[in-house]
Design a protein around this nucleic acid. Structure first.
Length: 499
DNA sequence: AAAAAAC
């Protein structure tokens, strides 16, 4: 929904409104229902071009208002060319939107449904991981607009649940992602089933040679719409990286969440198992968290996303399933628990914050072995990322002797402890004992006893040592690895098992 | 080296 936020556009072209595009009253009503008046830059560019019937190659990330940029004119065109004599039972598919991930399909579909709510147009979403029956019933009942992930759509086509013979408009959303995910053969199979004469819209966050090739083969004299520089990070996003020991990463993530009192944050993990573990850890320390990744059932994925959007959970720990496309409004912060292997994924991940003109923070933790990944990222975004210091970071004792509470950076926030009533899962039964003793502060307790780690007694990290930054990494402009050295020193003679 | 997507 934030995709149609007018903040960014208002700064650019305050005078332009959706009404200026000659959109149908039903569409304008739907927009005003949601309080949207001014188009974002990409909407201002895309809507007139799509209305002209031109093919479009759009370089835009999610959060720029892309979805409304194509769905509003699609609805308008379908309405304008509606065959009024058509019986309600016969609603052939006339617009098809393909997306790489299921969650993105759902979001696009939600937006389309909202924009078309006052029109007779029907839309539906089709994606895997769910029973086919409900989708089949709706498809057979007839819909003008289908939003789908490719695999399941082909499944429905093979089962003759849907025909694409009447499709006039095709949208390939997040086309770069679809290529990355190996959807090209599926895309080709689907496109072969479409009428030759149709309008094509392709959106991609990046402009790789492969994307250009895809555009050349599928689009006809496309109008190029480019809103953000490709591969550029939103300048509204403050980026900080923290160098720590590997085994500290999860504690630092927890610390950052508490220190900044983050109530809506996505934490990215490179692995599904890592996401689950981190989520469980955060839950055990009283932070409302859920994991979302490809090994979760579709029900779990949707439940986690819904809970996050509702604010029932504060932290969504995600793999790159959520890196692109997820439109979660007004995310103030994203955290990388792992630096992504693919530098481009970094851009997509941090694109979840600083959306639609708002500012945001992108925080990353990394360890010595990730220096190369960080260098790749900085090379891609053509800027050096601020090296952060973990002021006030205290790793508390992990044993029963550890003192806690009175010194911790969040020691005053005893109310955190109450959250643990939600508590660890049943299988973690014995870990409940500490939380039942009442409020506790950051870092204490509720740790799985399988942790054979020795107690870590760390003092607060003093900012006083942060003075000269240029000596450690000469030439790169990068800041030295001070935080890590400091913490390593504080760790004393503990065995390091990293690498 | 890992993630996503059809059954």
């Amino acid at each position: 929904m934030s995709e149609t936020s007018n903040t960014a556009a208002a700064a650019v072209e305050p005078s332009v409104t959706f009404a200026d595009f000659g959109l149908a009253p039903e569409i304008l009503r739907a927009l005003s229902d949601q309080g949207y008046v001014h188009p974002t830059p990409i909407q201002a560019q895309a809507i007139p071009v799509v209305l002209q019937g031109r093919d479009v190659m759009g370089a835009a990330q999610t959060g720029t208002g892309k979805t409304a940029g194509f769905s509003l004119p699609i609805i308008q065109l379908l309405l304008a060319h509606a065959n009024s004599s058509m019986s309600p039972a016969r609603h052939p598919v006339r617009a098809l939107v393909l997306t790489p991930t299921r969650e993105l399909a759902v979001q696009v579909a939600d937006n389309v449904k909202a924009y078309a709510q006052h029109t007779p147009l029907r839309s539906t979403v089709v994606f895997g991981g769910m029973d086919m029956k409900g989708q089949t019933t709706i498809l057979k009942g007839g819909v003008e607009i289908v939003i789908a992930t490719p695999g399941r759509l082909l499944d429905h086509i093979e089962q003759k649940n849907v025909s694409l013979a009447q499709v006039q408009m095709l949208v390939m959303d997040e086309a770069d992602r679809m290529l990355d995910m190996g959807f090209l053969p599926d895309l080709q199979r689907i496109i072969n089933l479409l009428p030759k004469k149709r309008q094509n819209l392709m959106f991609s966050a990046t402009f790789s040679p492969e994307i250009k090739k895809l555009a050349n083969s599928f689009l006809q004299q496309p109008v190029l719409i480019e809103v953000a520089r490709s591969n550029a990070t939103a300048d509204k996003v403050t980026q900080i990286v923290y160098k720590v020991e590997d085994e500290q990463k999860r504690d630092v993530v927890e610390f950052l969440i508490r220190q900044r009192e983050l109530k809506q944050v996505i934490v990215f993990s490179n692995t599904k198992i890592g996401a689950s573990r981190l989520s469980r850890h955060l839950e055990q320390t009283g932070i409302k968290a859920s994991a979302i990744h490809g090994d979760k059932t579709q029900q779990e994925r949707m439940a986690a996303l819904d809970a996050f959007k509702r604010g029932d959970i504060e932290v969504l720990v995600a793999t790159d399933v959520a890196a692109r496309g997820l439109d979660i409004s007004d995310l103030p912060c994203v955290i990388n628990f792992d630096l992504p292997y693919n530098a481009e994924d970094y851009v997509h991940r941090i694109g979840r914050t600083g959306r639609a003109g708002a500012s945001g923070d992108a925080l990353s933790v990394y360890s010595d072995k990730d220096e190369r990944l960080l260098a790749d990222i900085e090379k891609l975004i053509k800027q050096s990322i601020t090296r952060g210091e973990l002021n006030g970071f205290v790793v508390r004792g992990r044993g029963r002797d550890a003192e806690r509470g009175e010194r911790g950076p969040r020691s005053e926030r005893g109310e955190r402890g109450e959250r643990s009533e939600r508590g660890p899962r049943r299988s973690d039964g014995e870990r409940n004992e500490r939380s039942e003793r009442g409020p506790r502060s950051y870092g204490a307790g509720a740790l799985p006893r399988r942790e054979k780690v020795d107690p870590w007694f760390l003092k607060p990290y003093e900012p006083s040592n942060s003075a000269p930054r240029q000596d450690s990494n000469p030439g790169t402009g990068a800041a030295p690895a001070k935080p890590k050295q400091k913490i390593a020193a504080l760790l004393g003679g503990l065995p390091k098992q990293a690498q």
